[in-house]
Computed example of a mutant assay.
Amino acid sequence: MRTSRFLAALGGVVAAASLSACSLSAPKAEPVFHAPASPTPTASAESGEAAGAEAPATTGIRQVLKIAQLAGLAPLLVNAKGRTIYRFDGDSNDPPATACVEDCLKTWQPVLAPNGVEVDAGIEEDLVGTVERPDGNKQLTLNGWPMYYFHEDLSLGQTAGYGTGDAWFPMSPTGGRAEKVNDDPAPAKKPQVLRIAEVDGLSPEIVVNAKGRTIYRFEKDDNSPSRTTCAGECLKTWQPVLAPNGVEVGDGVDEDLVGVIKRPDGSRQVTLRGWPLYYFHKDLRLGQIAGHGVKGQWFAITAGGGKAQKKSTSSGGTNSEGTGTY
């Protein structure tokens, strides 16, 4: 550690420094008091409590702030034991204020420093301060942003709180968000796969994905030109077959019949002979065809884009035409 910095205990000998408590209405974070570095150990305890030395007029555990580099994340702030420190977008840093109270505190634990704080190299001393919480505790801030731990980070290096509510993020060494990064070259993204398979109860062979999930067409759609009519409530039952990384066809599927259309949400839906393709939400196991015949409008699709037909003696558990939820 290159610097030792201590918060004065209430009624301590540093009262002459005229420390003004910072609350939700305070104009700025309370600065952390400076003290000469001491040769004391810095092994940390969990909630803000690194094993420490005597602060002026008090003996106790002091908080430690360090910088860590975890796989997949930009440099972030941790305590001496490596526990990840977070910030909350619902808070304010100008003026510093915490919005995490009551039920929020069951999940997020303020980083406190009743006996001072030490900062590691790379953390700007002048950015570290405190804000007084409604219960009177002094919560550490960085560039005005209050600091927290996530209750489910049980092991060192965990970041289980990342992105919670789209508002909680590990804190960077300057108080910002520690965003996700790709340390390694991006793995090749797999294309969508269309292949054919023989399924009990239907004839001829039908189109499935790489894992064998049945693919369907919808009679209310158009194939010339291609157009999807499945939106809103329909999407709770039928999932468009998407191809963000292209399409790969297996034996038996004519690649010249395969295309894509742009859906209203901007995603790219695969088509076969112009027909938009879908999965049925109740097909939970490979080879299932529970969506075939639903409302007399949904059918497993063949390699040529046609409708598969039921065999006269079916051993599979298919839906009867006209049944189903949509």
Score class of each variant (00 low, 15 high):
A188R: 11
A188W: 03
K190V: 10
P191F: 12
L194A: 07
R195E: 14
R195S: 10
I196D: 00
I196K: 05
A197G: 07
A197K: 05
E198P: 00
D200R: 10
G201R: 09
G201N: 11
G201W: 07
S203Q: 14
I206G: 00
I206M: 05
V207R: 01
N209V: 10
A210G: 12
K211N: 15
K211S: 15
K211P: 07
G212E: 14
R213W: 09
T214M: 11
Y216W: 11
R217T: 11
F218D: 00
D221N: 14
D222N: 13
N223A: 11
S224G: 09
S224D: 15
P225C: 13
P225N: 13
R227K: 15
A231K: 09
K236A: 14
W238H: 05
W238V: 02
Q239V: 12
L242I: 11
A243L: 10
P244W: 06
P244F: 07
N245K: 11
E248G: 06
E248P: 03
V249P: 00
V249K: 02
D251L: 12
E255T: 06
D256M: 03
L257G: 02
V258S: 02
V258I: 12
G259K: 02
I261G: 03
K262M: 08
K262N: 06
G266I: 12
S267C: 03
S267N: 14
Q269V: 10
T271W: 04
G274Y: 02
W275C: 03
W275E: 01
P276Q: 02
F280K: 01
F280H: 04
K282S: 10
